[in-house]
Simulated assay, not measured.
Amino acid sequence: MTTALITGASAGIGAAFAQQLAARRTDLVLVARSEDKLQALADSLRHQYQTQVDIIAQDLTAADATETLFQTVQQLGRAIDLLVNNVGIGDYGDFAESDRDLQLKMVQLNIATTVDLTHRFLPGMRQRRTGGVINLSSVAAFQSMPYFSIYAATKAFTLSFSEALWAENRSYGVHVLAVCPGPAGNKFFEDAGFPAFLVDVAAKVDTPVETVVRDALTAFDKRESIVIPGGLINPILATLPRLLPREAVSSFWKLVLGRDTGKQF
């Protein structure tokens, strides 16, 4: 039986990955900050699917968090066959006026944590010549997004990084997939500080997290390098920026996302 490690597993897309992988009889190592939420999810999955579930309550923004996580997994004696790098944060607002520490924390969590955990677990997969990594990117990865600049840039990194690793590791029997959903759960936009009208817009094009994960696992099974889950709007958001002048795309998102800032044009 395979074992999957999922970061950001206590809610949203991470919890949906846990649910659907457990249904496939995959053993799990669930990682998030909230021990209570992790324990409740683990108890439910054990009861429903009779699968082995370990939990690790770890704030991945803490110093040496990835080292601590890796050593804890080693102590559990679990060989990780599937790594799901799902944890991440966003922040809405004018970069020059933003909280510097929060922007650096976003880079650390969205990029450095993904790179570090992948580098730690990937060699074992290559040695066993089986396994995979699923990295959560976003349709934001395909364009610059004023007032959402750092988040979009981190997801562009994740997409490029994942596609490169997909090519590097195919001959080792290891698969890497970038998942690029659009809005998938309003709480993300609320937590990121988006104005109410943008939260409402996101709700209207929201893709259920269950659909995101279902599409991701289907693409992973097919050994695809990238998947854009959900309906037609998300592929459009990913494709159009490639066809238009980059300045036009940035200006468009400045107009849309800057509506409540008084800084459109």
Rank of each mutant, 00 (worst) to 15 (best):
T118G: 15
S138V: 05
L255H: 12
M106Y: 08
Q71P: 00
V199L: 09
L159S: 01
Q264I: 15
Y151G: 07
G124A: 13
G230A: 10
K187I: 02
Q58G: 04
G182L: 00
A140M: 11
A15L: 06
T239L: 14
L198D: 01
L104D: 11
N135Q: 07
V209T: 15
F17R: 06
D54M: 00
A153T: 08
A219I: 08
G262P: 06
A248Y: 02
G230P: 10
T7N: 04
A9P: 10
V256G: 03
M145W: 00
T158E: 05
L177S: 09
G93A: 04
A164W: 00
R24W: 03
A79P: 02
P241L: 00
L177A: 12
L244P: 00
V133M: 04
N234G: 00
F265D: 11
E224K: 15
L117P: 04
A79W: 00
T68A: 14
D200N: 12
E67R: 14
D43S: 15
F161N: 05
P146F: 10
A65N: 04
A248H: 04
A202R: 07
T26V: 13
F194M: 13
S162C: 06
I233T: 13
Q58N: 12
Q108E: 13
V53E: 08
G262M: 12
A16D: 13
L104N: 11
F17A: 01
A23D: 13
A42S: 14
I89W: 03
V205F: 14
V256E: 01
P229N: 08
D101A: 14
E97L: 13
T158R: 06
F188H: 11
V209Q: 12
G93T: 08
F121L: 13
A196V: 06
G230V: 01
L21Y: 11
L5A: 03
E97C: 04
H47D: 15
F95D: 05
Q52K: 12
A248K: 13
S162R: 09
V174M: 10
A79M: 04
A9M: 11
D260T: 14
H47E: 15
N86E: 09
Q103P: 00
G182M: 07
I236Q: 01
Q127M: 10
A65F: 12
V212S: 06
D206M: 09
L28K: 05
V249W: 02
P181S: 05
H47P: 00
F95P: 02
Q52R: 15
A57K: 09
R78Y: 07
L82S: 05
R46K: 15
G12R: 05
G8H: 10
Q127A: 08
S144D: 05
L165A: 04
E210G: 06
S149L: 05
L255Q: 14
V139Y: 01
P208Y: 06
E168R: 06
D59R: 07
L5C: 03
R128H: 13
G262C: 09
L45K: 02
E97K: 13
R129F: 01
A153H: 02
A22V: 07
F95S: 03
W253P: 00
M145G: 02
H47V: 11
T118F: 08
R120G: 10
Q71A: 15
D59Y: 12
A178Q: 07
